[in-house]
Design a protein around this nucleic acid. Structure first.
Lengths: 291, 291
DNA sequence: TCATTTAGCTGACTTTAGTCAGGTATCTTC
DNA sequence: GAAGATACCTGACTAAAGTCAGCTAAATGA
C-alpha cells in the first residue's frame, strides 16, 4: 500500500514537472534569463526589501545584487535606501518595469488558460488541483481576523451559503439587506476570522456578540478542498482567542448531531453540551465553553 | 469563473513547483550535476538510443554527447553502435551504473515517502494527485490487449471487483478457482483490453467469446480518478477492434439503466437495445452492436 | 552511383548560475 | 563610543548549461 502510494506520488511528480517546466520556458521568451525574470516577478508580487527578496528566492547576496543591478540598467526597477534602516534597500518597479511584469503575468495566465482549454470539463481537475495545492501548502495557511464586510469574508460567506443552500435544499441568502450579523461580528461586539492560503479563502468562523461576556460561534465553514487537514481545530482556536481578546468569557454554538466529526471536535476541545438555547429547526445539539 | 479557474491553476503550479524543485535538489546530493543525473536516469528508464534520449531530454546534440562521454568516463554507461543503423548508438547502464541509478531511484522514493509522511491521512490527497496526473497525461494513455492472466489485468479486475462489491454491497470475487472467463477472454475466443498510463492501470474491458461470431462485452471498468475524460469511448472502440480482429461480427452487453452515462454512450456509439438475453438480476438493459 | 540526409562527435565559444573573499555604511549592544 | 553584527555591494572566480560550426560515418533515394 505504501509502496503503491509512493509510486502514485512519483507519477504525479513526473506529470506536473512537465507543466512547471513549460512555465519556466515561457518565461525565457522575453529574452531575459530566468533568474532576472524571477527577481522581477518577486518585486512585482510585493517583495520590496532586498533581504526579503533574498529569503524568498533563496539567492546568494552577491548574485541577487548583480541581478538587481541588471534590472536597474534595463530601467525596470528603482532602488532607494530603506528610511527605517538605512543599511537596507527598497526596490520598486518603474512604470516600464510594471509593464514588463504584467507581460510575465499574462504569460502565466496564458499558460494556465492553455491547460484549462485542454480539459473541456475541468471542474473535477480544478477541484483535485485545489486539494493538492492546499494539502501541500498547509503550513502556509494563515488564520486572521478580518472585517465581516471585507472581500475575503464575502467570499467565504458566499461559499458557505451556497453549500448550505445546496445541502439543506433551501434558499439561504446571507446578503439580504441590513444583515444584523454585521455589527455583531465586528469589533467591539464580535469578530470574524478567516483561514486563507495566499488570497484563496479556505475557511471562516464568526464570533457573534452583543456587548456582554457571552457570544456565539456562527458561520463555521471549511472549504471542501481543505477538509481532512485539521483546519477546523485551528480555526476554532483562533475564534476563541479573538473572543478572549474581546473580553468574552463564555461561547455557545449550535450544531447538528449528524455532523459527528464536528461534534467530536467540540467535545475534544472542551465544549460542554447544554440545553437548547434557540428554536431553530436545524440544530439539535447545543454546546458551551467557558474561556 | 474562468479568471478564477486560472488563478486556481496558477496557485497549483506554485504549490507543486516547490515539490518538483526539491526533487531536483536531492538529485544534486550525489555530487553529479543535474544534467548528467537526468541522462543517467533516462537511460535507466529504458531510453537506449541516443536520438531517443535527445528527444526525451530536449538536449542539444553536442551537450548530450558530452554528458554521455562524462558518464562513460565514470564507468556508469557503455555505448555500442546500433546494429540496425550503424550511424546511431545504443547506451546501456553498466553494473555500476545500475547501482547508481538505483540510488537515484531510492532518493526519489524517499522524497515521495517524505511527502507522504507529512500527510497523515493522505488518502484524499493521493486520490486528488491521481486525478491530476491522469488528466494532465491523458494523451499518453495507451490502450492495448493484454493477457487476462497478466499482472495489469489482475490489477484492473481487482479494482473492478472491489468497486462492484462496494457498490452492490455483495461479495464479488473474480478470483474464485477455475474462472470460466479466463479462456473466454483469451485468444482465440476473446480478448482483454486495458488502458494504462505508464504502469498505472486506468481502465479495462473484456471481449468474452465462445468460438463463434458472437461475443459479449464484460468487465468494463474505468478507474475512479480517470472518469470524465472520455476514456470509456476509446476503450469500447479498442474492444470492438479486438473483436473484429478475432472474426467476431456481433457484440452484446448488459447494463443497468441507472448508469445513464454509460447507456447514452452505447447509444451514441451505435448500439441497439435488444431483449434480455440472460437472467442476471442486476442488469435491466441489453444492447447489441453489429460490427 | 553520387548527392543528400541523418546520427553523432568534437572544439571553441558564450551565457547563466553560483561561490567566496573582501569592503563600506549603518545599526545594535554593552 | 567602541565592538560586533547586519545589509548590501563589488571583484574575481568556477561550474554548469547551452550554442554553433564543422567533421566523419552511414543510410537513403533519385
Amino acid at each position: 500500500m505504501t509502496v503503491d502510494s509512493i509510486k502514485r506520488i512519483r507519477n504525479f511528480g513526473r506529470a506536473v514537472a512537465v507543466e512547471v517546466g513549460a512555465l519556466d520556458d515561457s518565461f525565457l521568451d522575453r529574452g531575459r534569463p530566468l533568474g532576472a525574470a524571477r527577481v522581477l516577478n518577486a518585486i512585482g508580487l510585493g517583495y520590496e526589501q532586498v533581504s526579503d527578496l533574498r529569503a524568498f528566492l533563496k539567492l546568494d547576496t552577491g548574485l541577487l545584487s548583480r541581478l538587481l543591478r541588471g534590472l536597474e540598467a534595463e530601467g525596470l526597477i528603482e532602488t532607494t535606501t530603506n528610511p527605517n534602516d538605512r543599511r537596507g534597500r527598497i526596490t520598486r518597479l518603474t512604470a516600464q518595469g510594471r509593464v514588463e511584469f504584467d507581460i510575465y503575468e499574462k504569460l502565466s495566465d496564458e499558460r494556465a488558460a492553455a491547460t484549462l482549454a485542454r480539459h473541456k470539463h475541468a471542474h473535477r481537475l480544478l477541484e483535485a488541483m485545489d486539494i493538492v495545492t492546499i494539502a501541500l501548502s498547509r503550513d502556509r495557511i494563515v488564520f486572521e481576523e478580518v472585517d465581516y464586510a471585507s472581500d475575503i469574508a464575502a467570499q467565504c460567506l458566499g461559499a458557505f451559503a451556497a453549500e448550505l443552500s445546496n445541502r439543506l435544499n433551501v434558499e439561504f441568502d446571507l446578503k439580504k439587506s441590513g444583515d444584523p450579523e454585521l455589527s455583531q461580528m465586528t469589533h467591539p461586539h464580535g469578530a470574524f476570522v478567516v483561514a486563507r492560503l495566499g488570497d484563496m479563502p479556505v475557511g471562516c468562523v464568526g464570533v457573534k456578540g452583543s456587548g456582554g461576556t457571552l457570544a456565539e460561534i456562527k458561520r463555521m465553514w471549511i472549504a471542501p478542498a481543505a477538509r481532512g487537514l485539521g483546519l477546523a481545530r485551528q480555526l476554532m482556536t483562533a475564534a476563541e482567542d479573538a473572543a478572549r481578546a474581546l473580553g468574552i468569557d463564555t461561547l455557545r454554538l449550535d450544531t447538528n448531531s449528524t455532523l459527528f466529526e464536528a461534534v467530536s471536535l467540540y467535545r475534544a476541545m472542551g465544549w460542554q453540551e447544554i440545553d437548547r438555547f434557540n428554536d431553530d429547526p436545524y440544530p439539535d445539539l447545543f454546546f458551551e465553553k467557558r474561556l
